[in-house]
C-alpha cells in the first residue's frame, strides 16, 4: 500500500521548508529594519491579554485593545470576552505598578 518514493517526498518537503526558511528570514529581518519604538506597556498588556484576536471587544484585535487600554480609551476590561478575572487582575496590577513615560498611571475598571 505505502509506496513512498524519495523523489516525490522531497518536493513538498522542500517547497514547505523553503517557504518557511524564506519567510522566516524575511520576517526576522523586516522586524529588525522596520522596528518602531512604542510604549513598552502596550506590548506587555498585549502579552497579558488572552490573544484570541477575535475582535469581540469591538477593537481591532488584541493589539488594538491593548493600545486602547494604555491610552485610556477602554473603560472596562471585561469587554474582552475570552478574558478571565485572573487576566484582568494581572493587567490592572501591572498598570498600577508601572507608570508611563510621562509618569502618569493608567486606571481601568474590570
Amino acid at each position: 500500500m505505502l509506496t513512498i518514493t524519495l523523489e516525490a517526498l522531497i518536493v513538498p518537503l522542500f517547497v514547505l521548508g523553503g517557504m518557511g526558511l524564506l519567510l522566516g528570514l524575511g520576517l526576522a529581518y523586516a522586524a529588525d529594519v522596520l522596528k518602531v519604538e512604542i510604549d513598552a506597556r502596550i506590548e506587555k498588556v498585549i502579552e497579558l491579554l488572552p490573544g484570541f484576536n477575535c475582535g469581540a471587544c469591538g477593537y481591532p484585535g488584541c493589539a488594538g485593545f491593548g493600545e486602547g487600554i494604555v491610552e485610556g480609551e477602554v473603560e472596562q476590561l471585561s469587554l474582552c470576552k475570552p478574558g478571565k478575572d485572573s487576566d484582568y487582575n494581572a493587567i490592572m496590577e501591572y498598570l498600577k505598578s508601572t507608570p508611563g513615560p510621562d509618569g502618569k498611571i493608567v486606571e481601568v475598571k474590570k
Binding site: L13, L16, G17, G18, M19, G20, L21, G24, L25, A28
Partner: peptide
Amino acid sequence: ALVLLLIGA
C-alpha cells in the same frame, strides 16, 4: 528561520 524550515519540512 531554521526553526520555521524544520517545522515546514
